[in-house]
Design a protein around this nucleic acid. Structure first.
Length: 425
DNA sequence: GCGATCAGTT
DNA sequence: CACAACTGATCGC
């Protein structure tokens, strides 16, 4: 299995980093409007003071890239108390670094999210359901003047992209609307670009999850990793243990369990979380009896040699244990992007002994560099605003150079989208 | 007891 | 080492 297919070198070869543009005289963030976004994007240094730093003790204010221009909406912005004039608090998915600050005492206004995220917000955080508004997938809903549509983000269960289509107020521009796509955290795939609301749409702004916007980050398509599950039932006394965070990585343990025709054991707190996912096939595979399941799920931080040795002793029905640590950076190395292969028959062992194997599995829930390139090259958009790695000026500059390069490539080549085969670029 | 913040872990 | 995401300690009320 090939880790990464080649993209034309014209848009994946490393560009030279140019010097930052001259700093604006003003350090005070002006009101949020389209020209502000242009300024911010061209020179993010002027809003560096807005980006939270680890050592700041001052009360934090919501940074510009979490507020949607021409609206009173904020995205994944629960760490700033009540945001002045905010009429809609949007949540892209249920990971702590995005819902951070959201607690049972929240009373600032409506929270808009998917059904799965709503279940988790209510049942895990205890947020009063009077504040939670479930939005459907792939179906526009009017919120005030704005038309909002959610799409599958391919990150974790319940994760969504938000598409905002906002009428512009002034008579001169009444015929036009302002169109924003916010990716939250996502793993880019062609279906996101090809859906009828995005395909052939000229977007004004793309708020982009730029986590792996660096050619270092090359890893296989998720489908190939899922299909790398054992092809047939192995020794009944071999136990698979899969590490997970609160939500995410379900497709790994589900596909292994399916291949082994086994139940899946999770502890009771995890079972309560999985119930929120509204996935009947996953639910039907669960069991409360550890000895009945050849596939167990545990917290990611338990996937260590010491913990797994103890785990095997605690489960005497099994003689051998294969622990799986799904992670996005297994194949990441500093320097040039590499091609590697991955199969369960030739795993990447983190640790092994006579009866214990711990392997890293390159199962990322963020886009690879290549997928990010294909996504940006398959979308028509005026401005791209990174939402990740924005705290480091050097990273901001590197990201800006890549994004400018892709934008220029589209403009000069006339390419509108990257060809798709079998639902993948 | 609750929430905010930061340091530490894998 | 890289990284996202989580966990735990500490502080203030």
């Amino acid at each position: 299995m090939v880790c990464d297919l080649p993209l034309p070198t014209s848009f994946t070869s490393r560009p030279t980093v140019t010097q930052p543009s001259p700093t604006s005289a003003s350090v005070h963030p002006p009101a949020y409007n389209y020209s502000t976004i242009v300024d911010y994007t061209l020179n993010l240094d002027i809003v560096h003071s807005e980006i939270p730093t680890k050592f700041s003790r001052a009360p934090r204010t919501c940074p510009f890239y979490k507020r949607m221009p021409h609206s009173n909406f904020a995205i994944d912005a629960f760490s700033y108390g009540r945001i002045p004039d905010c009429t809609g608090y949007f949540l892209t998915h249920f990971h702590a670094d995005h819902y951070g600050g959201l607690t049972s005492t929240f009373n600032h206004g409506p929270i808009y999210c998917s059904a799965v995220t709503a279940n988790l917000v209510i049942h895990k955080l205890g947020v009063n359901s009077q504040w939670v508004r479930v939005l459907p997938l792939n179906q526009p809903v009017l919120i005030g003047e704005a038309r909002v549509t959610l799409f599958e983000a391919n990150h974790c269960p319940g994760s969504v992209l938000f598409f905002f289509d906002i009428p512009l107020p002034s008579p001169a521009t009444a015929a036009r609307s302002f169109k924003i796509l916010h990716t939250g955290d996502f793993r880019a795939c062609p279906a996101q670009c090809l859906n009828p609301y995005i395909k052939d749409t000229q977007l004004d702004a793309l708020y982009l999850d730029t986590t792996y916007l660096d050619p270092t980050y090359a890893f296989p398509p998720q489908r190939e990793v899922i299909e790398a599950a054992p092809k047939h039932r192995l020794d009944d006394r071999l136990l698979f243990v899969v590490g997970t965070y609160t939500i995410g990585k379900e497709r790994i343990f589900a596909s292994i369990a399916e291949a082994l025709d086994s139940k899946v054991y999770v502890d009771y707190p995890k079972k309560r979380i999985l119930r929120c996912l509204e996935d009947p096939a996953l639910w039907a595979r669960l069991t409360d009896r550890a000895a009945d399941a050849q596939v167990h799920v545990t917290a990611m931080n338990r996937i260590t040699k010491l913990h797994m040795e103890a785990y095997l002793r605690e489960n005497p029905a099994f003689t051998h244990l294969a622990a799986i640590k799904p992670t996005g950076w297994t194949f990441a190395c500093r320097g040039l992007p590499r091609r590697r292969t991955f199969t369960m028959e030739h795993p990447t062992p983190i640790s092994r002994s006579s009866n214990l194997l711990i392997m890293g599995v390159p199962y990322s829930e963020h886009s690879s560099f290549r997928e990010l390139a294909a996504f940006v090259l398959s979308i028509q958009v005026k401005q791209i605003i990174p939402t990740v790695n924005v705290g480091d000026p050097a990273r901001r500059e590197e990201m800006r150079v890549w994004l400018d390069k892709w934008q220029a490539y589209k403009k000069h080549s006339g390419v509108q989208r990257i060809p798709v085969r079998q639902d993948y670029w």
